[in-house]
């Protein structure tokens, strides 16, 4: 029987994968993908816990997150295109300009 704990473990694994992606990836586009993975890991956890308690607000929250993520991607991808036009690359090591 698949219980709530399985969903949470899956959510944790996905989150960790996303987190590692954020830490390791150098390409900005890949960073966006990694954050999307983390957001959706949280969505799974919300939906699972909402179902477990019989409360709809968890799933409602998941929808909100999807909506926010969609708009974020829309804006972010626009910026990425501009950045690519300016630098000819999306590598973080190349486009860093502020040094302490």
């Amino acid at each position: 029987m698949i219980g709530v704990s399985h969903y949470l473990i899956l959510s944790g694994l996905l989150f960790s994968i996303g987190f590692m992606g954020v830490l390791r990836r150098k390409n900005l586009l890949m960073l966006f993908f990694a954050t999307e993975v983390m957001l959706n890991a949280v969505n799974i956890a919300f939906a699972a816990v909402g179902n477990y308690y019989g409360d709809l607000s968890g799933q409602m929250f998941a929808f909100f997150i999807i909506a926010v993520a969609a708009s974020e991607v829309a804006v972010g991808l626009g910026l990425l295109i501009l950045l690519y036009k300016k630098y000819g690359s999306l590598d973080l090591d190349v486009i860093s300009s502020m040094k302490g």
Partner: peptide, 9 residues
């Protein structure tokens, strides 16, 4: 000071 190297990563 070196932490602030301008690299987002």
């Amino acid at each position: 000071r070196t932490i602030q190297n301008g690299n987002l990563s």
